[in-house]
């Protein structure tokens, strides 16, 4: 949004319902301590053990689980590879991980979304809230082709904002 368009913010509240429609939120409780669940999302050798969908395994992966670190996993099914990649925006033990996410088709990354994992300890168990939403774009990000570089641009913008 350019500065001349900031006046639209007041009128934007009507659009919030639409925003909710394009946001996925799941809550799940795991019978495991919070540190164990956090590790399962941030230790590469652990992530790949549960990452691949039914019938897939993860023969190739590169996961740099720190803020600004890139990640990419190849899920190999019986017929085809499903490749997904992104950048970690936030890795904050013990309770928060945020990363970008896009499927790759023929070497091109598709629409990018952001996945947030929030953990909460509840009586020795761990409540996990997963939120996936469309990129909260600045115009500069939006006009890019959502390529690999734009991830870093958006990340820079994100970090500058913090």
């Amino acid at each position: 949004m350019t500065s001349s368009e900031t006046g639209a913010a007041a009128a934007a509240t009507d659009g919030d319902a639409l925003s909710e429609e394009t946001t996925l939120r799941l809550v799940r409780t795991f019978d495991a301590p919070i540190a164990m669940v956090f590790d399962a999302w941030t230790v590469p050798e652990q992530i790949v053990q549960w990452w691949g969908p039914e019938g897939c395994h993860v023969p190739e992966y590169r996961i740099d689980a720190q803020a600004g670190g890139a990640w990419r996993t190849v899920m190999r099914g019986p017929d085809s590879d499903h490749i997904v990649s992104g950048v970690f925006h936030e890795v904050s033990p013990p309770d928060r991980v945020v990363f970008s996410w896009a499927w790759e088709t023929d070497g091109e990354r598709g629409h990018e979304t952001v996945v947030s994992i929030d953990l909460r300890e509840v009586g020795g168990r761990t409540e996990l809230t997963l939120t996936q939403r469309e990129f909260e774009t600045k115009d500069s990000c939006e006009q890019h082709s959502f390529g690999w570089n734009s991830s870093f641009d958006c990340l820079d913008a994100y970090l500058a904002k913090e």
Binding site: M1, E5, A8, A9, A11, A12, T13, D14, G15, D16, A17, L18, S19, T22, H111, T113, E134, F135, E136, T137, E142, F146
Partner: peptide
């Protein structure tokens, strides 16, 4: 999704 990522455009759709 890129189109929906903007609050002004969401407001236009809501209208």
């Amino acid at each position: 999704f890129a189109a929906l990522a903007d609050p002004t455009r969401r407001a236009i759709l809501a209208r």
